[in-house]
């Protein structure tokens, strides 16, 4: 416990006849998972955590790691989330593209402003989240899509957690496939502030279990078995989002098994018995800013799949064991 109450405040409260409990509530401090002081807004920051970065930092290292028979969790799952595109995901990109080009009753579509097939948006997703000057807030990709849809197309039902928004986010991220992520959180300003709040939220212990996001996504948990799963390290993870996530989805989802970063955070919150944030809300945006900046310097790879659909690795491991 790290709760401290200044004695002067207590005395003042007692003199004023206020119950000390009230003073306590005004002096709330939170419990944090250790490690906040070690993070940097670059994918190489993983060296201070799981130290598996050397196996997945670039294609050559990844090829060498695969050949050496390393397991997926040691490559932060980049063996299939970066090297292998998802065919199922590609099929859904077409749906996103169609939405992008489809005109409303007034003849307006996303393409009216951004060019057919969104040619003018190539590379944009690598620099999201961004500060929106007009709205005076940091926005993630899905929030920008919602605002455009509301204001330009009159579509009030394309919120961050809806199917059209998710399909569009998936398609737009794919237009930045291969782009190096570059979220500037070094310059003082709202994006840096958002990053720092997001970092603190990522390490803050919350919920029924009193876990932080970092409880699972930093060592020793990442790399070990959490039931049948091995959690990832959070560095470089955002570069594959939105991601194709068959067969898992939350109850009530209608997102074609595509998980945006926002949806993934909410899914993790549900699994960990934490209060689920509203997608696109300020705190959820902060967490995404933190995760995207933690992938700075890493190339976007969309569409890929959350789980490995390719069983080649079984043959690879047999080859390694027979050598």
């Amino acid at each position: 416990m790290k709760t401290k109450i200044p004695k002067a405040a207590l005395v003042a409260a007692l003199v004023a006849g206020i119950c000390p409990v009230t003073v306590f509530a005004a002096e709330v401090r939170h419990d944090f998972w250790p490690g906040r002081d070690k993070v940097i807004p670059h994918v190489s920051g993983d060296e201070q955590f799981s130290n598996t970065y050397r196996y997945w930092k670039d294609e050559m290292s990844l090829d060498a790691a695969v050949t050496a028979g390393l397991m997926s969790h040691e490559m932060n799952y980049k063996d299939f989330r970066w090297r292998e595109k998802s065919l199922e995901g590609e099929m859904l990109l077409g749906e996103g593209q169609e939405l992008f080009n489809t005109a409303n009753e007034q003849g307006q579509s996303c393409a009216s402003c951004h060019g057919a097939d969104g040619k003018e948006l190539e590379g944009t997703y690598a620099r999201m989240p961004k500060y929106n000057e007009r709205l005076k807030r940091v926005v993630v990709g899905p929030t920008q899509i919602r605002i455009c849809a509301e204001e330009r197309l009159g579509r009030k039902d394309w919120g961050e957690d809806t199917r059209p928004n998710t399909l569009l986010a998936f398609y737009l991220a794919s237009l930045s496939d291969g782009e190096i992520i570059d979220v500037d959180v070094n310059a003082p300003g709202p994006v840096k502030d958002s990053y720092e709040r997001g970092r603190d939220l990522f390490f803050k212990r919350v919920g029924h279990f009193h876990f932080a996001c970092a409880s699972c996504h930093t060592p020793p948990s990442s790399g070990n078995y959490l039931r049948g799963q091995r959690p990832t390290t959070f560095f470089g993870d955002a570069a594959q989002y939105p991601i194709y996530h068959f067969p898992y989805q939350l109850a009530g989802d209608n997102l074609s098994y595509i998980f945006t970063m926002q949806h993934q955070i909410r899914s993790c919150q549900q699994l960990s018995r934490m209060y689920q944030g509203r997608e696109g809300s300020a705190p959820m945006t902060d967490i995404e800013t933190f995760l995207r900046a933690s992938a700075n310097g890493y190339p976007i790879s969309v569409p890929v799949s959350e789980y490995n659909m390719n069983t080649d690795y079984l043959e690879r491991s047999q080859q390694v064991s027979s050598q």
Binding site: V28, R29, L201, H208, H210, S281, A282
Partner: peptide, 27 residues
Amino acid sequence: PYPTALLDRYPCHDYELPCGNMAPPIV
């Protein structure tokens, strides 16, 4: 399954809500 409506009893991420400013459970 834990009812999601009950999860604002514990500290949460959303600092715009009371649970986001809640103290951690006492040791």
